[in-house]
């Protein structure tokens, strides 16, 4: 679908900000947001396409005014709610209020290298769960 993420050919975004010897992460929270997203991807609950979809269907204003890892964070919050792994109330509270739902896989430190070498989560049909409009219209903290 088109939307704020569909930037090819758009005008008016100004000069490219090139940073010499740029680090991978610009703050510790970016490291955590990155790793949380990969670790939750490894649970096998959704496909890479779905995780992209949940970033790209952020409200356009929110998408364009968020930094890269802020987009990842918001996308992940929406994913866990859309797939019933946590409730909106739990996201707001920052702690568990309801029992966990079983997931296919839990990534432990010892499995990281092998998991990365094997590649991204598969896109099996069981993971192409149709997301309801309700799920994709929730914009946490937008």
């Amino acid at each position: 679908m088109n939307g704020a993420q569909d930037l090819g050919g758009q005008m008016g975004f100004g000069p490219i900000e090139i940073e010499v010897d740029e680090p991978n992460f610009h703050a510790p929270w970016e490291e955590r947001a990155f790793a949380l997203t990969l670790a939750m991807g490894a649970t096998g609950t959704w496909s890479i396409d779905t995780s992209r979809y949940m970033r790209e269907t952020l409200h356009p204003v929110d998408y364009l005014s968020s930094s890269y890892y802020e987009i990842w964070l918001k996308g992940l919050e929406r994913l866990v709610v859309a797939y019933g792994l946590a409730s909106r109330a739990e996201i707001g509270a920052g702690r568990m209020l309801e029992p966990a739902k079983p997931v296919k896989n839990i990534l432990t430190a010892g499995k990281v290298a092998a998991t990365l070498a094997k590649g991204g989560p598969p896109t099996g049909p069981q993971q192409r769960l149709p997301l309801s409009n309700k799920a994709t219209r929730w914009w946490p903290g937008a």
């Binding site: 992460f25 670790a39 792994l85 839990i106 499995k111």
Partner: peptide, 28 residues
């Protein structure tokens, strides 16, 4: 606010048992 949101999410997902925090360190 963003730092707090990331912390809250990591705490929640850890309590739920979906993630193993040492795996996050290993990924980074």
């Amino acid at each position: 606010e963003t730092e707090l949101r990331v912390r809250a999410l990591e705490t929640l997902l850890t309590e739920k048992g979906y993630i193993d925090p040492p795996a996050l360190d290993e990924l980074i």
